[in-house]
Design a protein around this nucleic acid. Structure first.
Length: 588
DNA sequence: GTGAAGGGCCAC
DNA sequence: AAACGTGGCCCTTCAC
């Protein structure tokens, strides 16, 4: 495909180019950079295209470079900024977070009216199969054409870019309006407009969050690490000697050393000691044995320390960006088919919730962290979806939710609920949104199969409409092969109807997906509302953990930021479910 | 050496 | 026939 493009490298040329594109309703948008990380590299080219006319802007000619100071302040770039921030035109980009981050950092502007073809493609696929969502894959799938991406990793730092490089850059932007048209047709056809709007409106908040990064107190972190390392050494030594008796052959070098991190070797050693082994050496299987066998208790102690060292040790410090002194993790907007975010490098969504670890992620001097989470959001969504009066009633303000459930299920007064009964109710409440069955409930509570079945039966008899809703979700999944969240986000699945396990897995997933996915819808909506509300304030998004939002702001604005945050979260939730509490909101 | 698979465990 | 959903990351083991 031959395309018409123009390389723009002077102010007058840029004015003309932007003038030519101003009338288009849809603009393809792409950038080429020397690195993947905006803090590390240079924004080399910026491409915009209405599908017919394509402009490739040589950013180096406008003061571009690794340091964004010059390009951000360059008045010659005003026409480009106007175009990007114009709400009139849809900016179509593939994985727009990437382009948005570079333009945010190097041009100082928030791109408006983003349409992300990567997210759109993911929504349409609805978690189905092995489909890939790279631009070339999407072009192949939706347009039936092959896109050459070989120049993507070429050297974009050269002073003189080759003709094929510039042409590649132009093509990537030029094809976007066409990709947009095809995808949008499917989005509308599949009823995914609202879900995609949520996603597209989230791109800027997420881009900003990644650029903001999260401050980590390195000395507190190392302090904690030292403590755990000492525990690991001590428990490791003790465990070695306790296990020694169970190892068949003693080493020639005195002590018998086994690799404590090898489940296989540990398993053999435990067996040698005559310990009745469960199916695996997983913590929850070993826990019941810990009381009777000190060596098992020691193993669990060692494992906990080893896990902390390996997953939450020195490695996280390597993610601190020297330019900012902060951790800039990678958030995937549709990390799970349910719509949940995932996070990596490092995963800030799996930091242990204990005080020793959380205190390391603090606000820098003069700043404050404001943290808010939804209270029992998934259960509230289930209550709202099912309309079950008894279940909704358990949420009445001032009540202990799990105790209220226990009272209803066991037919007693709330003040007479025993700790055991409350614990059963709590585990049922959590399990029910995952489609728990009697066997699993029996295993986790120690009840017999029959007792577990009876308890479950009593639970669902107490909440008949909830039971009905869950059964109906499972039925819908089997009959239609798909299920949706409140925003219309869809999950498709294939299953083997002859295979009971596969059908059961599909039914469990179908019960959980709309709930988990609606929770994700709500969080995404909250991020957008919050972004708009926080304009002109000191509040900055620094982390999200499924139902929790973490902001950093000037210490003097902590109170105001906390009110703003919970207000935005409540408003977002109310767009999808009727009644919701803002949960806890704290600032430190 | 590199990479996939599997066990294990952190978060919600 | 009995496996409660979604992720990421670490380690060992084993094949290439």
């Amino acid at each position: 495909m031959e395309i018409y493009f123009e390389l723009v490298s002077d102010p007058a040329g840029l004015v003309r180019a932007c003038e030519e594109l101003k009338g288009a309703a849809v603009l393809g948008f792409d950038v080429e950079t020397t690195e993947l990380d905006p803090y590390r590299g240079e924004l080399r080219l910026l491409q915009l295209s209405d599908g017919a006319k394509t402009k490739v802007v040589d950013m180096r000619a406008f003061g571009g470079g690794e340091d964004p100071t010059a390009s951000r302040a360059n008045p010659d770039l005003a026409p480009l900024r106007d175009l990007l921030t114009s709400k009139k035109q849809i900016k179509v980009a593939h994985n727009a977070k990437f382009d948005a981050k570079w333009t945010l950092y190097h041009l100082g502007v928030e791109t408006a009216n983003i349409y992300d073809t990567y997210l759109a493609s993911q929504l349409i696929a609805a978690g189905e199969g092995e489909r890939r969502h790279g631009l070339a894959d999407v072009v192949q799938f939706f347009l039936g054409r092959t896109l050459d991406k070989s120049q993507q990793v070429s050297d974009w730092s050269a002073n003189e870019l080759s003709q094929s490089q510039v042409e590649y850059a132009a093509k990537d932007a030029a094809i976007m309006p066409e990709v947009y048209a095809k995808l949008q047709e499917r989005i509308v056809g599949d009823g995914l407009e609202r879900a995609l709007a949520l996603e597209n409106e989230c791109v800027i908040p997420v881009s900003a969050m990644e650029l903001n990064g999260f401050y980590l107190d390195v000395s507190r972190w190392r302090e904690q690490l030292k403590k755990v390392e000492a525990i690991q050494r001590r428990t490791g030594d003790e465990l070695q000697s306790m296990l020694a008796g169970g190892v068949a052959q003693a080493s020639l070098f005195g002590g018998t050393q086994i690799n404590l991190d090898s489940p296989q070797q540990v398993n053999d050693a435990l067996e040698g000691l005559g310990i009745p082994l469960p199916n695996s050496t997983r913590a929850w299987e070993l826990q019941p044995l810990a009381d009777g066998y000190p060596v098992v208790a020691k193993l669990l102690e060692y494992r906990a320390a080893a896990k902390s060292i390996s997953s939450f040790g020195e490695n996280i410090l390597e993610f601190i960006e020297p330019k900012t002194g902060r951790v800039h993790a990678d958030f995937r907007q549709i990390g799970a088919p349910t719509g949940r975010f995932s996070c990596s490098k490092p995963n800030l969504q799996q930091i242990p919730h204990t005080e020793e670890y959380r205190r390391c992620f603090r606000a820098p001097e003069g700043k404050a962290l404001v943290i808010a989470d939804y209270s029992q959001i998934e259960l509230r969504i289930l209550a709202d979806f099912s309309g079950d009066e008894n279940f909704i009633n358990a949420f009445a303000s001032g009540r202990d939710f799990h105790a209220a459930t226990a009272a209803q299920v066991f037919g007693i007064d709330e003040k007479d609920v025993t700790p055991d009964q409350r614990s059963f109710a709590k585990r049922l409440n959590f399990g029910v949104v995952y489609g728990i069955g009697a066997s699993r409930f029996a295993m986790m509570t120690g009840l017999t199969q029959t007792e577990a079945e009876n308890t479950l039966r009593r639970y669902f008899a107490t909440y008949p409409k909830m039971d009905e809703w869950l059964r109906n979700a499972a039925k819908t999944a089997i009959e239609t092969g798909s299920i949706r969240t409140a925003s219309g986000r869809m999950a498709k699945f294939r299953f083997d109807s002859a295979d009971r396990a596969s059908v059961a897995a599909t039914q469990r997933y179908a019960k959980n997906m709309p709930i988990q996915g609606t929770s994700a819808d709500i969080l995404k909506r909250a991020l957008r509302l919050l972004h708009d509300d926080s304009m002109g304030t000191s509040a900055r998004l620094v982390n999200i953990v499924h139902d929790e939002i973490v902001l950093e702001c000037d210490a003097t604005e902590a109170e105001a930021t906390a009110s703003m945050l919970s207000a935005a979260m409540v408003r977002a939730a109310e767009e999808f479910v009727k009644q919701v509490d803002q949960g806890r909101c704290s600032h430190l």
